[in-house]
Amino acid sequence: MSSTYLYSEELKSIIDSFYTKIKHPYLQKYIEDPQIDADQAVILYMMLKEKKVDQAYISQCILTTILVQAALDTHEQVSVDELQNETNRKKRQLKVLAGDYYSSLYYSVLSKVDDVTLIKVLAKSIQEINESKMNVYKNKIKKIQAGFDDVRTIDTSLLRNIANMLQMSEWKNVIEEFFFLKRLLKERFLWLDKGMKGSLVDMLLYEVSETDKNTEYRGQLLARFDRHIEVTKDKLLHISKDWVVNATFLQKRVHELLVENKYEHWVMEEG
């Protein structure tokens, strides 16, 4: 878990309220509680703090954003395979319903405070995210950049659109580069460590020639991962220089991500 998880007591209490909100005894019996992306919550928190909105608004905005993210993440876990047994069947059924339940909760929370603007922003983001997910899943991607754009939309549409709503467009670049770096590092680590192929692997392979795919697969892919990581990292650190208020957080968090995902370790080993 990230060291920034406990960014403040205030944020911690919002996250607690999320877990209280989604509590349902039968769901808890069969499926795990959704994991919150602490970075998403922290960055949103910093953004709202900078905007100097009131505490109630900060709570609603973060709570509902993480509810939406939890709904999307839970639905992402719905398996496509044939069912092997009754327990898996029940788990799959409940993942579908839990995602729908979290989604209905974000709408309910915001309707109680008459925040139609945020309802609209989140609903719009969900549409964008699902369109991009479909692009990635069904390999509509013809160019690597388009694929990267889809991944960025999946990971950041919620925060980007909230930044737009708050008229804080300067945050959009930071958000995009940070979460893209995070995705690159995570997928690289999972591929090297566990052989798991994330969405980016196929996209990066798109740049590799057919001959190299057969002979130099591992080296080629790794080189591409590393190149994109370096470019994104530099871009992000460059942006953070102008982004005085939260630069320290960003630099610290980038360093943590590199360590968590054993980036420098692997680079040295591959040498």
Partner: peptide, 8 residues
């Protein structure tokens, strides 16, 4: 595809 369509 069903999950993405329903969510959309």
């Amino acid at each position: 595809v069903a999950m993405y369509t329903g969510d959309y």
